[in-house]
């Protein structure tokens, strides 16, 4: 398994000490946006992973300590949000795509 897992059928969130979880929701017009692409970029802007949001706009990444950028892509739109991750913890983010 290497491709992005279906974000609709993820297991319940468990945060191990070995990884930092970055998760959240993409919203548009106050409503969750399903099917948006979310890219996780490293501290140098390098692509690390990409998933497609679930029916409830949810996404989840497993990462390491440090500064990361979330980039949400929807037709004609691209929005960035910065997050700081810590191993053993889950950091939550809401990415708002302009209406």
């Amino acid at each position: 398994m290497c491709g992005a897992p279906d974000q609709d059928t993820l297991p319940a969130l468990e945060v191990s000490a070995a990884e930092a979880v970055i998760h959240g929701t993409v919203v548009k017009d106050g409503s969750p946006l399903a099917g948006a692409y979310v890219r996780l970029l490293g501290s140098t802007g390098e692509f690390t992973a990409e998933v497609q949001t679930s029916a409830t706009g949810y996404f989840r990444f497993y990462a390491a300590d440090g500064e990361w950028t979330l980039r949400a892509l929807a037709p004609g739109q691209s929005v960035d949000a910065a997050v700081t991750a810590v191993k053993g913890e889950a950091v939550s983010a809401t990415v708002e795509v302009p209406a």
Binding site: C2, S16, E19, I22, E46, A49, R60, F61, Y62, A64
Partner: peptide
């Protein structure tokens, strides 16, 4: 692979659990 996988900081792409 991504720079963090290359360096050994993480073991798998970041959309996957790291164990």
């Amino acid at each position: 692979r991504s720079p963090d996988e290359f360096s050994g900081k993480i073991k798998a792409p970041a959309h996957l659990p790291q164990e």
